[in-house]
Design a protein around this nucleic acid. Structure first.
Lengths: 238, 238
DNA sequence: TTCTTGTCGAGAACAGTGTTCGCATAACCC
DNA sequence: GGGTTATGCGAACACTGTTCTCGACAAGAA
C-alpha cells in the first residue's frame, strides 16, 4: 500500500489540488465559464500561473475535474434524498427528481456545464466523465426497475403507453436496453425515458430562465408535472 | 425620405455590415461562440480589426446582432411552414413545432445561444431582443387562440387539465395573460404552456445531445410526443 | 471646382488570456 | 549526505478585445 503513510509532499499536493478546484469553482459560479481565468485562480490561491500546470495539464483539464465534482455532488445530493425518503421506490423516485431540481436550481452555472449546450472547443473526455455523468440516470433507471419488480409499475398502463409509441422509438430503446440494462423490462425503460425527458426538459427550461417571463415560480408546476408523469407512466405509490 | 437615394457610402456600409455578420455567423457555427474572434472575422472579410469597430461597437454588439438575425431566421422558417400548411390552426400548430425542431437541429449553435445557458458576461439587451425573441412564441399562442375561437380546443379536456393543475400555477399564468394577452382564454394559455414546455423541453435535450446515448434518432419520439401533447391539450385537428 | 466636414481603414499600443520553457529550490529516497 | 524528483517562479510567445492616432477618401456647400 502506498497509501500507508502519505508523504508530506503528497499531502500538500492533495490539499493544493482541492484548494485550486475550490477557488476555480467559486470563480466559475460567480462569473461563468468564459470568465474563468487561470491567472485569477492562481492569484486567489497565491501562486504563479505556471505553477497551476503542475496540478492540471490545461484549463480544459481543470474544467473536466470541475465537471466530475459537479456530477458527483449532484449525484450524492440525489442519492441522499432517496436514502432519506421512506416508502417504496415510487416515492423515492419522486424525491429523487425533486432533489435533482433543487440541486440544479441552486447550481445553475454547473447545471449549464453538465446539461447545457456543448462547450465549444472543449472536448469532454468520455473516459473521465462517463461514470460520474451517468450516476443520476442510473439511479433513476434502478428505481423504476425496482418499482417494476415490486409490482408498482402498472403493466397495463405502461404497456398501453408502449403500444401508442412508434415502433422505431421503442426499437431504439430496446437496443439500448439489451446493451446496457438487459435485466430491465422494456416497459420500464420506455416509461423511464418518458419521465426523464419530461422532467429534465422542463427543468432545463426553468434553469436557463426560459420560463421566467411567463412563470416566475415553477415549483407548483414542476411538482404537478411530476405527479402527472408518474401517473401517466403507471407508477403507483405504495 | 433619406432612403430615396442611398449614397454610395451608405450602400457600402450596408453591404459590409451584412458581409461581416455573414463571416461571423460562419465562424460561429463552425467553432462556437468562445472561438468567435474579431480578428479572425476581420481576416475573413479582408480588413483590419479596428475597422470592425466602425460597424459594431463591440464583440457583444456583434453577437447581439447575430442573435437578432437567428431569432428572425427561425421565426421566418416557422412562419413559412405555417403558411404552407393547409387546414385549420391545429395542423398549422403541429407544422410550426415540427419546423421549430427542424430549424433548431440544423442550427445547434444558434439554438444554444438563443435558448441555452445564459451567456456569462454577456448581458442581453432587452430592447434589442425583446421583439425578435418572442416572435415564435407569439405565433404559437396565436395559433392556440385561433384554435380556441374555431372551436378546436375541447373545453372539457382543457378545463379538466386546468382543474388538475395547482392554483398557484394557474394564477401566475392568469396574471401574465391579463398583462400580455388579455383577449386569450385562460384555458388556451394553460394549454399552450403545457404544450410549449413539453416540446421545447424535449427539443432542448435533443439539440444538446443529452438523448444521443439512449436515442440516436429522436424524430419518431418527438412526433409522437407532439401528437400526445396536442391530444392531452384537447386540441383536435380539423 | 475647391474647401470643409465627417466617415472609414490601417497600424500601433495596452491589458488581458492559455501555454511553454529554463532555472532555482525544496522534498523525497537510498 | 548525495542523487533524484517534484514543485514553484518568472520570462516569453501567440493569441484575444479594445482604444487611439493618423492618413485617405467620399459628401455636401460655397
Amino acid at each position: 500500500m502506498t497509501e500507508a503513510r502519505p508523504t508530506l509532499r503528497e499531502r500538500r499536493r492533495q490539499d493544493l489540488t482541492t484548494e485550486i478546484k475550490a477557488a476555480a469553482r467559486t470563480r466559475l459560479a460567480a462569473d461563468g465559464l468564459a470568465a474563468l481565468s487561470l491567472r485569477a485562480v492562481a492569484r486567489d490561491v497565491g501562486m504563479a500561473v505556471s505553477a497551476l500546470y503542475r496540478y492540471f495539464a490545461s484549463r480544459d483539464d481543470l474544467i473536466t475535474e470541475l465537471l466530475v465534482d459537479a456530477y458527483t455532488a449532484q449525484a450524492e445530493a440525489v442519492e441522499a434524498a432517496v436514502a432519506a425518503t421512506a416508502g417504496g421506490p415510487v416515492p423515492r423516485l419522486r424525491a429523487a427528481l425533486l432533489e435533482f431540481r433543487a440541486w440544479s436550481l441552486a447550481h445553475p452555472v454547473e447545471y449549464g456545464l453538465l446539461y447545457g449546450d456543448p462547450l465549444p472547443g472543449y472536448q469532454a473526455p468520455t473516459d473521465r466523465l462517463q461514470l460520474p455523468g451517468t450516476r443520476v440516470a442510473a439511479l433513476l433507471y434502478g428505481l423504476v426497475d425496482a418499482a417494476d419488480r415490486a409490482g408498482r409499475l402498472d403493466r397495463a398502463v405502461a404497456g398501453a403507453r408502449r403500444d401508442r409509441l412508434p415502433a422505431e422509438h421503442v426499437d431504439q430503446l430496446d437496443r439500448w436496453r439489451r446493451r446496457r440494462v438487459p435485466d430491465m423490462g422494456l416497459d420500464a425503460v420506455v416509461v423511464t425515458v418518458d419521465l426523464w425527458t419530461r422532467m429534465q426538459g422542463l427543468l432545463t427550461l426553468e434553469v436557463f430562465g426560459q420560463l421566467r417571463p411567463v412563470l416566475p415560480d415553477v415549483t407548483a408546476y414542476f411538482t404537478a408535472a411530476l405527479d402527472d408523469a408518474l401517473a401517466a407512466a403507471g407508477l403507483t405509490a405504495g
